[in-house]
Every structure is written in C-alpha cells, then in structure tokens.
Write a protein that binds this DNA or RNA. Structure first.
Lengths: 366, 366
DNA sequence: GTGAAAGCGCTAACAA
DNA sequence: TTGTTAGCGCTTTCAC
C-alpha cells in the first residue's frame, strides 16, 4: 500500500503518557471519558498529542480490548462489484446502510468470489456481526461466517433453522404470477431462472436439478410454478426451464432465445427476475414478436427499470429487506430463538402479459 | 446486538494450545503457515479446534499484531445510504469495489453524517487506508481521516497538496458546455448547482458565496461558466445561480422553478449534475415549456438516466474514478510525492440543447 | 481525579 | 518441526 504524505511517526498512548508524566489511564480517559479528568489536564493531553502527532487511540487495539468492531459485515453471493450493478441488490444495500447509520455502525463489504473457495476474507473481517445476502446453502463463505462467534442474519437464502432470517414467501409470490397467466389462458409456457447451484449450467434444467437447487429462492419459485401449472393440467415435465449462471439482460435474452428456438409454440415466458425478463423482452423485440400479443413475459422483483418497461411482475420490498436485516442484527434484545421476518409482495399488472395468441382457436376451436 | 444461535464459548488459541499440549505458535502455524508443521499435527490441531468450537484466530487480535486490517475505508459526503441512491456514486463504488476485490481487500463504508460533527466513526474504523469521495474542504471527517496514520486518496474534492487525488478537469469540462451554448446563441442563462458548503442555502447564490464555495468541484464549474460567458459578453453578476443542498430531482425541479419565476426570459438552464437537470426537465414539462425549443437544459455526469432522457451533458468516467482511487491506494509502490490522476470527460450532444427561442429577433432584429 | 496492574488474542523473532 | 519470549496498543477494574 502506498505511503501517504500523512503518515505520522508511531506515537502511542503509552509514549504520550510517558511524555506527559501521567498514566496511560489518564490519556485514555482524555479521549474516552472526558468527565473523568480535569479540563485543564485534558487540554494538556490533547495538546501534547497534537504536538507528538499522536493520532488518537488505535482503533484495532481498542476493538481488541472492547470486543467491539463497530461494523457489520456483508456477505454477498456475487463479486463485490456486482452489488452495485444489480438494482435489487442496490436497494437491499441502501436499506442495510440505513439501518447501519441509524446504529452508527460501519458496513464492511466482504470480498467473496463465488467461484473460489477461499474464505480467508471472512476470517479476517473485523465485525460484530454478519448479514448474508442470498447465497447457496452450500456456500463455503457462509459456512465460515457461521463458524464465527458473532450474530448473523440471512436475507432470502438459505433458510437455516438456527439463524435469523429476512425474506419473502417466494412460492406464494410466484403462484400469483402463475395463476394470473393461467387465468389468461396460458398453458404452453417456458421458464427462465437464475443460477440454481454453484456450478455453471447455462441451459435446460432437468427436473432433478430443479428439485435439488441449492438456491432456496429459485427452488421455491420453480416449485410454485410447477404446482400451479400442474393444477391447471400442465405436465411440468414438458415445460422448458432454462437456467443462467450470470445475471444480466444478455443472459435473459439468450435464455429466451434458447426456449423459443426449441419450442416456438410457447405463449408465455416466466422469468424469475426482472433483469432476465428485460433481456427476454429485448429478444422478443429482436424476433419481431409483439408483447403481449405474440408472447407474454413476466418478471420478478419490481425494480424501477421493470416499471418503466411496463413489465408484469411481482414487487418485493428490497429496501425494506435490507433495513429489516440490519435491524434484526443490530437489535439489542437478546433473543434465544431465531427470528424470521417475512415481508409482503405484490403482483404488478403491467402491459407485458395478455391472453395467448390464438387462444380461442386453441381452447374453443373445432 | 442480538445473540446468534451460533455463538460459541470463547475458546482461544491459547486454550487450544493448552488442551493439545503444544505451543501457541504451533496452533497459529496450523492456521497461517500450514507448511510449518507436520500434516498430522495440523490435522490434530484443526480437529481439536472443531471439537472445542474454536473459530480460528480472532481477526481483530490478528490485525493488531500484523498491523493490517485487510480493508479500505470509504468516507462519503453524504449519509451512507445516499451512496446507493445516486447513480454517479454507485458507479464510483462499483469501480472502487472492483479494485478492492482485485486486491482481496474489504471495503468499509464509514458512517459520516454530513450534518454532524461527530467523527468517532472515523476514529473507530479498522482500515489500512481511506478513500475520500467528494467532501468539502472543511469537512471535519476529512480532517479526522488525515490525522490517521494511514494512506489516503481523495476523489474529486478537496484538492490537497499532500494527498493523492483522482478527479477530472471540471473547469475544462464545463467550459465545453458553456461554449456549446454560447455557439448556439444563448446569452441569458441560469445555473442550478449542488451544495456549495456545509451550511444549507437553498436559493440564489451571491458571487462571494460562489467564489468561497467549499466544494472545489462546484466552485470550478461555476468559475468555468463565469469565464466562458464573460468572454461572450455576458455580465456574470446578472446570471441567476441557484443552489440546492440536497441532491435529487425534486431539488432540480424547484431550483429551475425558482430561476424561471424570477427571470422568465432565460433561454438556457445549466445544471451541474444530471440529477438536477432531470429535475429541471420535469419542471419545464410541468410548465409546458418545450425543450429545447423554449428552453435549453444541460446536465453533468453522464448517468444512464440522462442518456435515456437524451440530455445534453458531460460524461465523466465514474467507474474509472473509483477504480483509479482504489488502485492508487492499494498500489504497493512506495511513493514520496503525492500522485494525481486526471481522467477525461466528453461532451454529450443530446436533444435538450438548441438555439434560443427567437434568437433571430434578439440578435439580428431591428 | 489519578495511577498500577492485568490482560484482550494473537504473531514473529529467535532459539532449541 | 516445535517452543520461548516479547510484545502489538489499548481499556478497565480497583485502589489511592
């Protein structure tokens, strides 16, 4: 690391005390308990500190002694920088930051590359607790967090019996989408979903992989869809489900393409995120398919971009999730049982879902 | 803070060593220098650690000993959560996060309420260095950072002779905007700018406040405009400049309204940020003014939303700024002189700037 | 109001 | 390969 122009010579509390001819306690008090010494002495201490270039008590040493770091650690599924690219993650972070600043706590973003097993960054994090945002149930970083003797709150996934959690009812939420499409008359659908496990599988998802998904959120959404459409007489085994490891609009577009290529008869594409749906929308446009006349597309999350695009989707309170997670973590109450906060969602009827093309012919025709 | 279900009893490296009948060094080595002891012994150590619920070396104690925190601190002008609401700040953060993850460093967001003088959070931050993002030159948090014996890099502002800095040439950049408008024929302009100092002044800005602005970036932009328009024969003292403390579209709208109410003859509104310009655009629409036929509006930053709105603006490489700041800080080279990175900007010709209304009559008429 | 003593939990020389 | 010694810089009883 570069040496700054402002590096001071290493004066310490002890050397300051020696210089002043007082005890270390007195110097410490000058900083931490102004009322414990005379204003005059305090002035002298601070004055001498300035002269010696003493920067005040070392935060790390203080943390060691007080057993408080004054910061919350955040563990994400993705590379650190991804958090600033995904609108839903940004909203979550804003909420979490809100909770942290209310409690005057720092927020430490822990670098955790999902494609690496290296958990040293978790071990090195000097924090009083962790918030874990949407990671697979077999994430080694998560395991490392849980080994740390500090409180932890998980947002979204995984669901752990002994850990505080904030989330939504994914199955119920996606069921609203499914029922809406079923009512509109859709029976031939395709599904685009996010990463189901830590291994990259960009393509069709066989049923066993759906059921074994290490991301509870995605698993629930698929399960919800399967149940709803099965009730409507759809054979789920025939429904094309395509997975994408990365999460951006290009992936949404290519996944949509993959489904439409294989099964052009599809009338609706259900995406498990707005980002993917926005990509699917692009692909539909590219193919000259009108939405929703030729193809219905739905998303999930309710990000601004989706709203602007008029996407039919489910809104979930991302900011509130972040805030709730922070509050849960920073809440002073000592609790014995793990707490769960389940937030509400709302079906947003946009302009990208409509009756299937040629519905009459298919359902009421000859 | 809530007690987690995962709090272990406090086994330490020493107690583990005692239990095993080996020295603390050996246990330490088992974690930090696997090659320094036999695989067999290491296995025993780790195995016993698990049995005792020893979570591995305490990160804070380790930091104290090694004098490395493994994290970079970030100080922002605004409340923590603001960083996730401003697209330019988000871009900067993404770049900084990129640099941090490359170096395997954590990123600690330090809570620093700009309306409070409390700098304790800076003192408590266990970090190896600071990045300071766009703060006023008299910010007490900045002063506290500079007192800390760690390297520091400032992005944008303030300009400090002895501190590494990343920024752009604000005066040159805004001059491009000014010259563009001057060429189009604008002589009666208004300016909407961001906060000029730590005190809230939502309204017109007298010349002395412009010159005394504690935010170097805003000061330079105003100075650049003043110089360019003076060259074009405009009396800068007559140009209405309105300041807003908060940074959002509502503020941009109300500032635009304030100027238009006072001086309806204005033909162009120069805003020192895209967010403010987007707000001004809203206000123009609300008043039934066509842009650019009735009113020209320009921004600064080049955020996505501006692009979508077709705003005429200056694009600055926000992500690159973040990355450069991180690189500068984490760069291993020991440097003696402070370094400065000045990044390029680009005038974006959108659709919100055009010739002034009735330009002919005014300039070539009777 | 001030000081002495006792660690917080760990790592890094160096010695064995 | 393992252990001994010596702190990192600070806060906190508890006496005075």
């Amino acid at each position: 690391m570069a040496r700054s122009m402002h590096v001071r010579r290493p004066a310490t509390l002890a050397s300051l005390a020696a210089e002043l001819g007082v005890s270390r306690t007195t110097v410490s008090n000058a900083y931490n308990r102004p009322d414990q010494l005379s204003p005059e002495l305090r002035r002298r201490v601070l004055e001498t500190a300035r002269r010696l270039g003493y920067p005040g008590p070392d935060p790390v040493a203080r943390s060691l002694r007080t057993r408080k770091a004054g910061a919350v650690g955040l563990l994400l599924t993705e590379n650190l920088s991804y958090a600033f690219r995904d609108p839903a993650a940004i909203g979550f972070l804003e909420g979490l930051a809100l909770a942290c600043e209310d409690a005057n706590q720092g927020l430490l973003l822990v670098p955790a590359n999902p494609e690496k097993e290296d958990v040293a960054s978790v071990h090195r994090a000097g924090v009083d607790g962790f918030v874990v945002y949407s990671v697979p149930d077999d994430d080694p970083h998560l395991a490392a967090v849980l080994e740390r003797p500090v409180p932890t709150v998980v947002c979204d996934q995984p669901e752990l019996a002994s850990v505080d959690r904030v989330g939504i009812d994914d199955e119920a939420a996606i069921t609203q989408v499914a029922n809406h499409l079923i009512e509109l008359g859709h029976r031939r659908i395709g599904v685009v979903c996010m990463r189901l496990a830590r291994d990259r599988n960009d393509g069709f998802v066989p049923p066993d992989r759906q059921r074994a998904a290490h991301f509870h959120v995605q698993r629930s959404r698929l399960a919800g869809l399967a149940a709803a459409f099965a009730s409507a007489g759809v054979d789920w085994a025939q429904v094309p489900v395509v997975e994408r490891f990365d999460h951006n609009t290009s992936c949404g577009a290519s996944a949509a393409a993959q489904i439409l290529d294989r099964d052009p008869g599809i009338t609706a594409l259900i995406c498990t995120s707005d980002i993917l749906a926005l990509g699917a929308l692009n692909e539909a446009r590219r193919r000259g398919l009108r939405v929703p006349q030729d193809l219905t597309i739905t998303g999930f999350d309710g990000i601004h971009e989706a709203e602007r695009a008029g996407l039919t989707t489910v809104r979930q309170p991302v900011l509130e999730k972040g805030r709730a997670a922070g509050k849960l973590l920073l809440d002073a109450h000592e609790r014995t049982r793990p707490r769960t906060v389940t937030l509400g969602t709302e079906l947003i009827l946009g302009s990208t879902a409509g009756p299937p093309r040629g519905a009459e012919e298919r359902w009421f025709g000859p």
